[in-house]
């Protein structure tokens, strides 16, 4: 078992290199890279200063060949792809993800600022999802075909069918704009630093989090609830539950002590994957609620060709995904004794 996990951990290294090489190479060939962006910016600047001048010749005149060459050296574009990849990688190993071309500050600092925000939403969403889905799926299975089952199915499916960002917009319009019960967005209030106790600060964060969390959760608990319901119904019909009842165990206890544990196996399989997906954040929801999370950062840096940030976000999400997979395996091994890793 330990040996298996050591092997899995070691396998992270080649997988990680594979993922990053792929993206690194793509950044080289996609048009509109950082140098083109700078040329465009310089062009705009010169247009504004230069007045009515326009035409094809301006681009060349604003940044001369020498400057472009300097930029290429700065970004490592003067060397072959693999050489500059190697340079980048050796810096990553020392936790140096480079400097953002947009903010001109270390990528790692930018990510460090955003990661906790996305992680807060991700983990809270996941906890709420588990706390709703498992009991809801449980009751839906026990009360299969009852009114409760049908009505809750409708609610779950509606939540699943509407995209999360639409839910977010609807919530924003009703509860923030019309009723003014909740703030329009942001992670916390402007006077957050002035709040006196950590308790008040926590309340402030959660007050801002209510609507975005509802948008996150609305779409995410459908799959989990139905996975739980179906797994439990399968297990209720299993012979070992009948054996348990034949031993004299009351039905409710047979469900709790025998069927439930077996039903958690498929849920556990998903656990690790959820972690990585959820911490990444949804850039649409982050955009709507004006939350400076990792999702929004990744999206904006792609649009603006801020490659150091793109690669930095990729490093973080790839590592989370790879560890998430291993975590899934551990969870499954914990709940299902039949699973043995060699």
């Amino acid at each position: 078992m330990t040996q298996y996990f050591i092997r899995r951990l070691l396998l992270i290294i080649p997988t990680f290199i594979g993922i990053t090489i792929l993206v690194f190479v793509i950044t080289r060939f996609v048009p509109g890279g950082p140098i083109e962006q700078m040329i465009a910016e310089a062009q705009q600047a010169s247009q504004q200063t230069g007045g009515g001048l326009n035409g094809a010749g301006i681009g060349a005149s604003t940044l001369d060949a020498e400057q472009i060459r300097e930029l290429e050296i700065y970004y490592g574009f003067d060397k072959p792809v693999l050489v500059s990849y190697w340079q980048w990688l050796s810096k990553v190993v020392q936790f140096d993800l480079g400097v953002s071309s947009r903010y001109s500050e270390p990528v790692w600092d930018t990510i460090k600022e955003r990661l906790p925000i996305s992680a807060f939403y991700g983990i809270t969403t996941m906890l709420i999802t588990y706390f709703i889905s498992i009991p809801l799926g449980y009751w839906k299975a026990i009360k299969h075909n009852s009114h409760f089952d049908h009505v809750s199915s409708i609610v779950v499916f509606v939540g699943y069918a509407i995209p999360a960002y639409v839910v977010g917009i609807i919530l924003l319009v009703i509860f923030a704009s019309n009723l003014e019960w909740f703030p329009m967005g942001g992670f916390y209030s402007e006077d957050f630093e002035d709040l006196e106790t950590p308790w008040e600060q926590a309340v402030d964060v959660f007050y801002h989090a209510v609507l975005p969390l509802m948008a996150y959760v609305a779409g995410s608990f459908a799959v989990m609830t139905f996975m739980m319901k179906n797994a439990l119904m399968d297990n209720l019909a299993a012979e070992y539950v009948r054996t348990a009842i034949a031993k004299g165990i009351p039905f409710n206890q047979a469900v709790k002590h025998h069927a439930l544990r077996n039903s958690l196996i498929p849920i556990a399989t998903h656990f690790g994957n959820n972690i990585s997906v959820i911490i990444g954040g949804s850039f649409l929801i982050e955009k709507i609620f004006n939350i400076d999370g990792l999702g929004l950062l990744g999206y904006e840096s792609i649009v603006e060709r801020d490659y150091p940030i793109v690669l930095g976000v990729l490093v973080i999400s790839a590592i989370l995904q790879l560890f998430g997979n291993i975590l899934s395996d551990i969870c499954v091994a914990v709940v299902d004794p039949r699973v043995q890793f060699r």
């Binding site: 299993a238 034949a246 031993k247 544990r261 077996n262 299902d336 004794p337 039949r338």
Partner: peptide, 28 residues
């Protein structure tokens, strides 16, 4: 009543099923 039946099952009248492969709970 159900609770008196619980006292009889497994105690006074016990049962063995056809499929030993699935009649035991796999996780215990």
């Amino acid at each position: 009543p159900a609770d008196e039946m619980h006292n009889i099952r497994g105690n006074r009248i016990a049962m063995v099923f056809q499929e030993p492969m699935t009649a035991l709970n796999p996780v215990y």
